[in-house]
Design a protein around this nucleic acid. Structure first.
Lengths: 336, 336
DNA sequence: CTGTTAGCGCTTTCAG
DNA sequence: CTGAAAGCGCTAACAG
């Protein structure tokens, strides 16, 4: 009984379904009065077009998928905010898929996306993802993809990241400038573009300062916080303990704080720490963390804009790499 | 050329479209060999059913909407995780909508949801939401809704929250037990069920301890952190400064920390603080925050389960209030 | 067990 | 400017 559809509007207005449809889409080949009548009744009955009928017919859904490893993570939350802001403005709907840092889940999700459910995909890779044939397949099937943050360089499409190499370099240089000579680098996965590029910056900064690389100081953690805690603890208990630590992700910096706390190490007296982190979290830490802060919201927003530009023009997404600058912030200010 | 659909499979197998359809849905009225042949070809061609055709025909989309005020907020992120875990298991897709704590956005989103795009809605109200006719309308149109955390008591449907009243009471009692007598209560909106119920617990706890309520100690902040900072600062600079503060949301506790820091007030020496907060954030604060921790993941999971139960049975969602216990944790442990 | 048929609600030719 | 008709891909009667 409820179901307000075109047929009902047409019957009530004594018009054909197609005329009503055109009037609602503001077609130029409909008279002004007819349009007004149609719009008026549509508003009165609160007509909502059936999105699935429309999607089926037009072969586009005005829906995009956002595929991220996790959501309880300030970076991804902010990025999703950015994506949402432009999606909403463009009248697109956003489906969220979480891989939980898990390739098999990622593959299964990407498989679903072959169905035409979405017009495009925004994606940040899981830390387990090494092989990328599932992504190549998605691309091959013509689904527009834009990668953000954790990108895939082997697929010809747009990537949006921060200046990972430069900020890795600068972060390391910052520690050197503070007098550090034994600088550790913490990462969570060798698969991830971000960890690798930031590390390249780290290595080059060391070289430029004529500091020998000590493999022992490069620590690869994982997804398990307890394990990371243990790894970092043993790093800080070794003789020849590092005097500086560069954490390539926030979570590792937090574990480092906990370790220092428990070992009674003074920050920054005994060990200086710099990390990729968002400011809010950093400002909670005492003494506050020196951070490299990514413009997470803007990364999401930019990635979405690039995708929509492609969708609007119905052209393939350009194979470009957009790099947004992150900021090195020596000390997060506390309150205001 | 690509488009693998039922017609193509049928042609290639010399079967009718309906037989193929039934075989894929594992109907019991199809022979085993036919099924196997169909499944084999479907797998080979990597057939993905068109979700929109199916949704249109069946009038259900296997999609739910999650409407939340924001996403860069640990509680909602975790709740969405919980929702996602059960949605994925049930084969449902999750559309995310953000209201940004804004009624007008909420109304517009709810309006979209009248279209039949989703089979059900999981929702946490914006802090501005006073009038709820848009929600009543959604309910009236037959869209199943489950509220979680920030619920709407005037709509007959399921609500999932923590024990807001009890934990408000216990939090206040905890401060009294610590020797506090001038206990302030911080909230962000008088519209929100959570703020009100927690406050009722606060008031009753004071009464039970024969402590007079001082209206001056009930501070209503808002969405702007700077303003909250200022309000809390003036609260702590008054003569007759509170000796205990109960923040009904994490964000207000963090502002309180910043104020105390800047005013040189010792926590918990000068003022004791307890707040609804997640443990991870609390453990970053020094000295660590005494918290009331909500089972955010489980709240999301439970809300989703209640919704899916209704969808499975095609019955209306029961008008029930499910209450999950939150935990009062005197001190977040640091490391590990 | 399999096929034929009739739509779901919408957009879009093609005719007037 | 408006209408009639076809069809997007799938499902579900209804036949056989």
């Amino acid at each position: 009984m409820d179901a307000v559809n075109l047929k009902k509007l047409a019957r009530q207005l004594k018009l054909s379904v197609s005329t009503v449809s055109r009037a609602l889409r503001d077609s130029h080949e409909i008279s002004r009065e007819t349009k007004e009548k149609v719009l008026a009744l549509a508003a009165e009955l609160n007509y909502q077009p059936n999105p699935y009928a429309s999607s089926l017919r037009r072969q586009k859904s005005r829906t995009i998928a956002v595929v991220v490893p996790e959501i309880a993570n300030n970076f991804f939350s902010l990025a999703i905010n950015g994506i949402g802001s432009v999606a909403q403005e463009k009248g697109y709907h956003v489906l969220i898929y979480l891989t939980h840092e898990n390739v098999s889940e990622e593959i299964s999700i990407v498989g679903h996306l072959l169905s035409g459910r979405v017009d495009g995909v925004l994606m940040s890779l899981s830390s387990e993802t090494g092989d990328t044939t599932h992504l190549a397949e998605l691309k091959r099937k013509g689904v527009p993809i834009v990668f953000f943050d954790r990108v895939c360089d082997t697929i010809e499409t747009a990537r949006v990241t921060t200046d990972d190499y430069e900020s890795g370099f600068n972060a390391t240089q910052h520690l050197v400038d503070q007098g550090c000579r034994r600088i550790a680098y913490l990462l969570i996965s060798p698969n991830l573009s971000i960890g690798v590029k930031r590390m390249q910056g780290y290595l080059d900064a060391l070289k430029q300062n004529s500091i020998a690389v000590d493999e022992q100081l490069i620590v690869q953690g994982g997804l398990d916080n307890d394990q990371n805690y243990a790894l970092i603890k043993s790093l800080l208990q070794r003789d020849g303990r590092p005097d500086g630590i560069f954490a390539s992700v926030e979570r590792l910096a937090i574990s480092t704080y906990h370790v220092c706390n428990d070992l009674g190490l003074d920050i920054p007296g005994d060990v200086k720490i710099i990390s990729f982190s968002n400011l809010e979290t950093a400002s909670l830490l005492q003494p506050s963390l020196t951070t490299v802060t990514q413009p997470a919201f803007d990364i999401g927003k930019t990635a979405a804009m690039v995708l929509f530009k492609g969708l609007d023009k119905k052209s393939a997404i350009a194979d470009e790499h957009i790099i947004l600058k992150s900021a090195l912030i020596p000390r997060a200010s506390t309150g205001q």
